[in-house]
Amino acid sequence: MDKRSFTEAQSLLEDIKRGDERSLNNWYKQTRPAFIRWGVKNYDCTEDEVIEVFQKAFTVLYFNVRDGKLTEMSSSLETYLLGIGKRLFLEHFRRRAKAGVSLDQLPDTAALDTDYIDKESRNHRQQSAAKLLAQLGETCRQILILYYFRKFSMEAIAEEMEYKNDKVAKKKKYECLKRLRDMVDEKGYSMDDFM
């Protein structure tokens, strides 16, 4: 990677980590056509199937960056995305993959975490909490998502939500977490709600 590409990749990495939606959206649009072409050509899939894999690969990459599993770029982010895509294709379409696919130059993605896709394993209480979060009120929903999903620090949350300081934000977060817990205990959905 040349110096400019490296700087751009690092900057994109920072944007993704921050959850900068505009950057993410731009990158989605920029990488999508190439990914579709690559998938259709190499894995004998329909465009819709490739788009599905592209979205999963995009999500895995986002989570890996967010969780600090990808901090330094030794190749371009596009190459990482293709590496994840390759693994997902091989998992889902192994039998249909064409022979002679020469993608050996892609990074080893064996260590990439794709557990998020396995939603079947989520238990009833987890699914109740996910559903009830929307009923908790926007402030609480936002603070809990920022902390537990987007991995913001309490200082960053205080700034984002205009609290006086991180202590105030932290206190609010505990209140929201406890309220969600109480709601799950009181209203917890039955299994039928998820069928």
């Binding site: 999500t59 998020y116 939603k119 989520r122 238990n123 209480r125 987890q126 699914q127 109740s128 909490a129 996910a130 559903k131 009830l132 979060l133 929307a134 809990l144 998502i145 537990y148 999903f149 987007r150 977490l177 969600l180 817990r181 799950v184």
Partner: peptide, 11 residues
């Protein structure tokens, strides 16, 4: 479970 549920909602 509650925290996993919040992560699930984010996903």
């Amino acid at each position: 479970d509650i925290i996993a549920g919040i992560e699930l909602a984010g996903e």
